[in-house]
Design a protein around this nucleic acid. Structure first.
Lengths: 343, 343
DNA sequence: TGTTATATTCAAAGCGTTTCGATTCATTTT
DNA sequence: AAAATGAATCGAAACGCTTTGAATATAACA
């Protein structure tokens, strides 16, 4: 078997508890004793067994990470990245992350993540839309919770969001600075908080530059925000006979669909029309031209959530509320100075 | 506190050990007793504490998953998918996966994954190229190991690979069936086992159809297999004055670069020339035309590795050797019947 | 009928830590 | 000088389970 605290104690000529006290830096230990113990530890190459520790201390140093399964199984790498961000950060703090998904039709009594049943986590991070029943269940367990990109209706929680409004505002500001004045908004899924935030950012940017919000330039009736809906939204927009010199699309998928429409209708990007998206998905650089967009730091969102969780756990400071992860404008080739602008 | 085995024992009017025996389906328990215990468990909503179990049974039911960090931090989602495949599969078997990365300059004495130090895993899965020193270290711990997409030089191990040769062969067969006879091979990084396998598949397909291997149609001198190297490889190929009607690129990145070159040189895909890649990366469908390719089931590779590991752990059957995860031809728009073929 | 095998249950000894209260001894304080 | 304080260490009791060997009861066998 591997070496235990007992061996260390024997070698150092002290009791078990003294070794434990040294390891955990508690109470007063004579410097000389501490040294003896530390030497013994080094010599024996001792490392405390996590399991025994957990059992005795009632802290697991594990964190649960829960996703609704439809967020995960689909090819969408957003939450995957968020998870990985949290996972990496967890290592800094000596936590492990246990990942699981729950079906979106979760009902109490079924499907309860095993790490909850086994009392194997100190807290839970939930990303994306998760079933309310699950939230309630975890709350009953009195485990701290952090949400990412979601916040349940009732209750006071800490949530980590990306700065949708700020990002949208930055995107539109970028266009304005390039001399654009007729800037269309291409959106969809108006019920989604992120989309709402992005539209607000669009509005704010216009407002800050005293540009009017022209309703006819806003096209956001589609319930989806996919490549296809981007194409058809662009179609509806231009069929109205408007002539924007720039478009802000509420995400890169829609931007891509929109670009397709523009090309098919012989509008040159960015010469005739500039376009900027939101998300910075990997395909963006492969587009022709590469898409200017707003980069969302997905990994950072996970990392931030993790740090908050550790804070709650260790410092017991449970400052509740939202935290916004900043986003960043990435300028590529799909935006250019407005035609006829001579500023 | 939550309910323990003690409570169950009391409620069922039996001893601790009896309850434990019922839970673990060991030895003979009178059906009537078993029922009483099971009822008590259900009534109290009891679930055994994992930690206590681990401590007592010396099985952690955790598995380590190790990646070299350069495989992970880069935007390449290959290993991410493999990991997720393993993670999902692990749940079926009631294992947890603990993920970690090691620096590629790993040396014993530093950076040892915590789950190894803490004796917190029953086995280790390693994906991609991992440092030999680490492999040695894990072996010393007498932990079972499974490799994914890698196999260390010395020692006998179980490794999970994708069927590179079979996939390449299928790709080229597809071209041959479309009537192509002059099929170029675009490769790179000849030291990589995967690339070697793919070239062998190319050869095999030609051979099986009695087509000659024309050296001048093989371009694989680049040490990389990137989009850029695909472009330059195509350039070198065509500068030789050859006229292939189809190209098999050893991965999608190179295929993409190659397509760029073809378009710039006014070769229509697939009318003038067909092209097929390997990997099925997500961008493929966005290409113009969408790329015919070989789909690698990354998640399945992780799942297979996991199942093998569980087998080793639970059935003690340690059949050693390679296992090939099959790949699959995905026909899209970049391949078409050869011009002038009338079969 | 006595013996042996088998089925069922249990008590107790771990597993490797943490933690709490107790003990000892050296200082201070009054 | 007695009492109180504080530092350093330790013993023992958890933590919640598994596992083993023994005990008891029952059935099968010769």
């Amino acid at each position: 078997m591997s070496v235990t605290i007992k061996d260390v104690a024997k070698k150092a000529g002290v009791s078990l508890s003294t070794v434990s006290l040294v390891i955990n830096r508690k109470s007063h230990i004579a410097p000389e004793t501490r040294k003896r113990v530390e030497d013994a530890i080094a010599e024996l190459n001792y490392y405390p067994s996590r399991t025994a520790r957990v059992l005795a201390s009632k802290k697991t140093s594990n964190l649960g990470f829960i996703l609704s399964d439809d967020h995960f199984s689909r090819a969408e790498p957003f939450y995957t990245k968020v998870f990985l961000g949290a996972e990496f950060e967890a290592r800094q703090f000596h936590y492990y992350i246990l990942l699981t998904t729950v079906p979106k039709n979760f009902r109490e009594g079924s499907h309860i993540p095993r790490f909850l049943l086994e009392r194997n986590v100190d807290g839970v991070i939930m990303a994306g839309h998760v079933p309310q029943a699950l939230v309630d269940y975890v709350q009953n367990l009195e485990l701290p919770i952090i949400f990412i990109d979601y916040s349940p209706g009732r209750g006071r929680f800490t949530s980590v969001f990306m700065d949708n409004e700020g990002g949208a505002c930055a995107a539109v500001n970028h266009l304005i600075q390039l001399g654009h004045k007729e800037i269309a908004f291409l959106g969809g899924d108006k019920s989604h908080p992120s989309m709402i935030g992005r539209f607000q950012g669009y509005q704010r940017a216009l407002q800050e530059h005293n540009l009017p919000l022209v309703p006819i330039l806003v096209e956001d009736d589609d319930p989806e925000t996919t490549l296809e809906s981007g194409y058809s939204a662009a179609e509806r927009l231009f069929k109205r006979g408007v002539q924007p010199t720039a478009i802000f699309a509420c995400n890169d998928a829609m931007a891509t669909g929109c670009m397709k429409y523009l090309k098919e209708n012989n509008l040159k990007i960015p010469e005739d029309i500039s376009i900027v998206g939101f998300d910075d998905i990997e395909q963006d650089v492969l587009l022709d031209p590469p898409l200017t967009t707003i980069r969302v730091q997905k990994e950072e969102m996970g990392a931030v959530a993790l740090r908050r969780m550790v804070e709650m756990l260790e410092k017991k400071s449970s400052l509740i509320g939202q935290v916004l992860v900043p986003v960043e404008l990435v300028v590529r080739k799909s935006t250019a100075r407005a035609a006829g602008d001579r500023s």
